[in-house]
């Protein structure tokens, strides 16, 4: 921000509020540590009630999303450790519309400066022989994630289904994980709002997100403000039978999602092809995002 338009009159009150918030957070955190030895996190009851969406029977030439949703529901019948969520992105089909980036922002209520799935545009060749390539870049959900062992407080880990999860309430905001990611897939929430420097905070800035199956309202410096943030394959959607927001919003159906442990699934079919690649494979991170080229 160029200059903080501070209202002097509010500064003292703001300071008091800030100190109060710090104290509250400090003691509530202390209580949390003392009271809960295990990390069992209650899901939002509203989310738990939901049944899986009802799907029409398979038909020839149906939308590929329907097939993937059916496979998703099938995977959800299995114990969580038997699922292996992977994403496949067909670079030949991506037109660089950025709909996935925007859908992700809308789904997870991402503030300015935080992005989970940017689309990189590459220009190849020289005029007149030029072409473009678009590379959407979600979190790679690595099998050997460099971001996990660096966390000093165990605030991020690999779930049994392979997704890298974060506990926003445990993250101290040191940002070491952000430096450790070889894909720049983690960004920091610095507490900015889209409607900063406007007369009123917009409603979309105050809407809660439901990442990791919990309700997160960005206010008063509370988490996820001050935390590292990243794509999580929309696990809160997966668990209610819905595909990630980037997958459903892809206008060219270039993003596929599913359970690689299911040999009948579309993603299992796609990643067995020879035209598959993963980013920076030489680092040994074993990403679960595959690109078709």
């Amino acid at each position: 921000m160029s200059n903080g338009n501070l209202e002097n009159s509010g500064a003292v009150g703001g300071m008091r509020e800030e100190l109060w918030r710090l104290a509250r957070a400090f003691f509530s955190g202390l209580a949390l540590v003392l009271l809960s030895a295990q990390r069992g996190q209650a899901q939002d009851p509203e989310l738990e009630k939901l049944d899986l969406p009802e799907l029409p029977p398979p038909q020839p030439n149906e939308d590929v999303l329907l097939r993937m949703m059916r496979e998703l529901q099938r995977a959800l019948q299995k114990p969580v450790e038997q699922r292996r969520w992977v994403m496949v992105i067909d670079l030949r089909k991506c037109v660089g519309c950025h709909a996935c980036t925007i859908a992700c922002i809308a789904e997870n209520k991402l503030p300015p400066g935080v992005v989970y799935r940017p689309v990189i545009t590459e220009e190849l060749g020289e005029f007149p022989n030029v072409s473009m390539r678009f590379i959407p870049r979600p979190c790679m959900q690595c099998d050997d994630p460099p971001c996990v062992p660096v966390c000093p407080v165990k605030a991020t880990w690999v779930r049994p289904d392979g997704v890298i999860e974060m506990d926003y309430n445990a993250c101290i905001g040191c940002r070491y994980c952000i430096t450790a990611c070889p894909y720049n897939a983690r960004t920091a929430d610095f507490g900015l709002y889209h409607s900063d420097h406007t007369p009123q905070r917009a409603a979309y800035d105050e809407a809660p997100s439901f990442e990791y199956g919990r309700r997160w309202k960005r206010e008063g410096g509370n988490s996820p403000i001050g935390n590292a943030r990243k794509c999580h394959f929309c696990v809160h959607r997966l668990e209610v039978g819905e595909l990630p927001a980037c997958t459903t919003s892809c206008i060219g159906r270039a993003t596929f999602f599913g359970d690689a442990n299911d040999p009948e699934s579309l993603v299992a079919e796609l990643i067995s092809k020879p035209n598959v690649m993963r980013l920076k494979e030489e680092l040994g991170t074993k990403p679960k995002v595959y690109y078709l080229v």
Binding site: L22, G173, D189
Partner: peptide, 8 residues
């Protein structure tokens, strides 16, 4: 990012 959680 969260000064109050340093003791974690």
């Amino acid at each position: 990012g969260h000064m109050e959680r340093f003791y974690y």
